[in-house]
Nucleic acid binder design. Sequence first.
DNA 1: CCGAGATGAGTAATCGATTTCACGCAAGTT
DNA 2: AACTTGCGTGAAATCGATTACTCATCTCGG
Lengths: 335, 335
Amino acid sequence: MRLLTTIYDVATRAGVSAATVSRVLNGSDSVAPDLARRVRDAVAELDYRPNGVARNLRRRATRVWGLIISDIGNPFFTALVRGVEDAAHEAGYSLVLCNSDEILEKEQSYIQVAVDEQMAGVILTPSSEADSDLTPLLERGIPVVAVDRRLDRHDVDTVVGDNVRGALLATQHLIASGCRRIACITGPTKTTTAQERLHGYRQALTREGIDVDEGLVMIENFKEDGGYAGATGLLDLDERPDGLFVANNLMTVGALEALVDRGVEVPRDLLIVGFDDIPWAKLTRPRLTTVDQPTYQMGKDAGTLLAGRLGGNTGPARTIMLSPTLQVRESSVRS
Amino acid sequence: MRLLTTIYDVATRAGVSAATVSRVLNGSDSVAPDLARRVRDAVAELDYRPNGVARNLRRRATRVWGLIISDIGNPFFTALVRGVEDAAHEAGYSLVLCNSDEILEKEQSYIQVAVDEQMAGVILTPSSEADSDLTPLLERGIPVVAVDRRLDRHDVDTVVGDNVRGALLATQHLIASGCRRIACITGPTKTTTAQERLHGYRQALTREGIDVDEGLVMIENFKEDGGYAGATGLLDLDERPDGLFVANNLMTVGALEALVDRGVEVPRDLLIVGFDDIPWAKLTRPRLTTVDQPTYQMGKDAGTLLAGRLGGNTGPARTIMLSPTLQVRESSVRS
DNA sequence: CCGAGATGAGTAATCGATTTCACGCAAGTT
DNA sequence: AACTTGCGTGAAATCGATTACTCATCTCGG
């Protein structure tokens, strides 16, 4: 049983060779108008569609991007995926989605899949600044774009938020709101995001002439339970903070839960600013002040960079840094 | 410049034929131990990895699933994607993610891509019960699973939530909480989800001997602005409702915003129950009572069904219906 | 000791499109 | 008229793996 009509069926029907059919379909070489017409008719009559796999084999390239992200369950990445998806669609590529779960091995395994399937390019949020290994891709000339987090080992196109600036804005705002003992909960320092946000926090304090108290800095795991643990630790201090900067969205949720459990009321007892917008921000009480990143735009830009590479751009690696904006809501304003 | 090592390079190095290398790698036919060993050594020495594209062409099948969903930006689908992703990974497939944006044409175009790329199977949330056309897939024997929404035209494996039951639970709960004038905001009736949820709402009222007032039923667009419009319309009625059942998550958010804007306080003035859990439910005020669907499980089950078909199951189409659970929180409890 | 059957491995066909190469024919040059 | 030049077209090679087929060798029963 023959299910698929091939280019030869079309050729036979049009009374030409397969080569001519291919030429008509790809429009590069010139073909006599009447032949082209016959080919097009035959294509229409047979409802012919080229076999993408065969084409990929011959062309030694696919029209697919691999997108390897840490966790599709984290809403932060959702908008990012959306941005990449749109850019891919515009440039005529499809997207293969892969979840690394922040696990280096899974990341590596997906990188191998990308190589095996000869994907056109890869966009990833590196699970580790130092250890993520892109060699298999780069040595085969597959372009890579890092997004959200930087990479140490490889010099590739990168799209990140201005984390230092975001943290600076957040902390300055807390100071302006009257806080003097400001704590910070940040993530594992092996990620550039955690490092940079901590740096911005320190910078703000220094600029305003406030001593950095290292006891007020909590390094946690970037997840909900990390935020909970961090906030709990801070509340156990002899001298509690009066302001809190939390360096990512999930940790902010955890921290707020800890505050509720301990009966600490925001913003009465403590002002708080989070990082990355959370969905339904309008519905939370207190409404959260956050440092919003243009997440969708980050994805879109990453996609555009990749499309540029695939379009032949061989210039030096480029880093795009997007500015975050501070969304002041209730949680950081004294009532 | 030769970038890729092929099966012939391995064969040469091991002193055997390409066929033997293939046999060793695929493990089906038996090969003499010493040859197998030499092949494996050569593979290791050359760091050989088979070209997936060539393999796909020859096998006339890929190890890829297409997942066509309405909107990756809607958090409802995020957990679903996650479930599918896990099932795919377990069964040894990768996932190509496609956003249809609820647009039929985009959906059709992605279906064609799935055919062209000879994807192994497709999972989709049909953009329309009546109009989504799976013919191109089915006539080529590509198995399809519908998830979240049913399909009219084709008899395929399906995974849905028990929408009638969910709506019934929600409405009964409102009645039990003392409401007598209960309104409903639901989505476009061309989707099965909207229909069924409306049905469950009516069923609950009838069972409890309450007349259904069609003026209290708002048909909106399943998005935030739809919820806002619906709630506004209800508040403009001469006789306002004292209970509200909203048939999806985004609309619930919109409705709540309308209530805030109109100064209607929940749960003092109005009790409300939403459909589908929303992230950060713990942080919203009032905490929302919702009908939670096991979204992750829906995705996982859909993936398992697809894997089953690919494993050779040729039985009749199966529909899996998952029960939702009512999460009672503050918004539906009189204070 | 011979022939049937099993086994293992190589040769070559195959998947379906793209692309190189060569050929035939028409137009342009001297 | 002979000779290049160029264009359009088809035949065949190619991409890299899988697999049907073939053949040589080995085993075992009669």
